[in-house]
């Protein structure tokens, strides 16, 4: 009995010593001379729930990223406030490139604009790579009397506020899309925000709203039950090639959720470039692209500079629309 106890105690002591020793070793390594990035595991923060689109993409990227970086990539979820909690944390984190986070447009642009304290500014985050877009499309039920975008807009103009449009939340990509459409068409819709894409689709499929703004993957999945009137890409979307774009129909805007990766703004230039290279390698892997496209995403290979310019352009566009429509 007492023998057993002694063994236990020894075991514990050993465990404690090992833990401390391991930690000290890590510290020593960190405190030593600057080592080439990356020399230890990279945290890849997903600002949304597990199981969502950002998460799925990251899970697919992980193996490729680990190969490209040569270190472990640890995916951790930090959901909350539409991503703002994670981005606020990133903005305050050490700018060493060991914490990288998914960033979504328009979220990171709109939140600092409309919230009194979002916890970060768009400029606090340094965009590194843009790899994916989920285009947003507008659809009505299969048995709706409206067959084209023109029909629907004409009806909405004649009956202001009569057409209800389901979408995934306030100040989300869907919300922005309806605002842009209202701004460009002078029609007046009633936007009904839900607490996410899934409940929004439920509301629409149950016939509780007349139209829906939905992500491309939901459109692909439920296309039997709806007529898709327009999609927010610049060119036709590969998975729904018979659906015209908003632009084709005279409304000059694109709608979608863009996903990329970002770091804290003071991250050293060579580290940013290393992350850019790793994501570029993964994003050019044909197998990865094929898998992502099958899930209903549009894939990009856009590096840091072009990405930053894109965000600036989007920011101006969003500020114009929100100001014109009195949302700011």
């Amino acid at each position: 009995m007492s023998r057993k106890k002694t063994v236990w105690r020894l075991g514990v002591a050993l465990l404690v010593i090992l833990a401390i020793a391991g930690q000290t070793a890590l510290f020593a390594a960190g405190a030593g001379e600057e080592r080439a990035y990356p020399s230890r595991a990279i945290n890849y923060v997903i600002p949304f729930d597990a199981g969502g689109q950002s998460d799925i993409t990251a899970q697919y990227q992980r193996a490729g990223l680990e190969r490209a970086f040569g270190v472990d990539v640890v995916i951790r979820h930090q959901p909350g406030a539409g991503g703002a909690l994670a981005w606020a944390d990133l903005a305050r984190s050490r700018a060493d490139g060991y914490t990288i986070a998914g960033n979504n447009i328009p979220h990171i642009i709109i939140q600092p604009l409309v919230r009194e304290n979002a916890g970060y500014a768009t400029e606090d985050l340094r965009p590194v790579y843009l790899f994916q877009t989920t285009p947003i499309g507008l659809a009505v039920a299969a048995n709706s009397p409206h067959n084209t975008l023109a029909d629907l807009i004409e009806y909405a103009r004649a009956n202001p506020g009569r057409v209800t449009v389901s979408g995934s939340g306030t100040h989300s990509g869907h919300h922005l899309a309806i605002l842009q459409l209202e701004y460009l068409s002078d029609a007046d819709f009633t936007y009904i925000p839900a607490t996410g894409a899934a409940p929004s689709v439920t509301n629409f499929l149950g016939g509780h709203t007349e139209a829906i703004l939905a992500n491309s993957d939901d459109l692909v999945q439920h296309q039997q039950a709806m007529k898709i009137l327009a999609i927010g890409t610049t060119e036709r979307f590969h998975a729904l090639s018979d659906v015209p774009t908003f632009m084709e129909q005279g409304y000059d805007f694109t709608a979608g959720i863009d996903r990329g990766v970002t770091v804290a703004k003071d991250t050293p230039e060579d580290v940013v470039r290393a992350i850019e290279r790793a994501f570029d390698t993964v994003s050019r892997d044909p197998e990865f692209v094929a898998e992502m496209e099958a899930l209903g995403f549009e894939m990009h290979q856009i590096g840091a500079d072009e990405y930053a310019a894109y965000i600036e352009r989007k920011q101006r566009e969003i500020i114009t629309v929100l100001t014109e429509l009195g949302e700011l």
Binding site: W8, R9, V12, L15, V16, A19, N43, V74, R76
Partner: peptide
């Protein structure tokens, strides 16, 4: 001692196996 053992085990499982930061 019992607490230390149990808590260390938990922290190790969370940190290393489940990769909770």
């Amino acid at each position: 001692l019992a607490g230390v053992v149990l808590m260390t085990a938990f922290v190790l499982v969370f940190r290393i196996t489940l990769r909770v930061p």
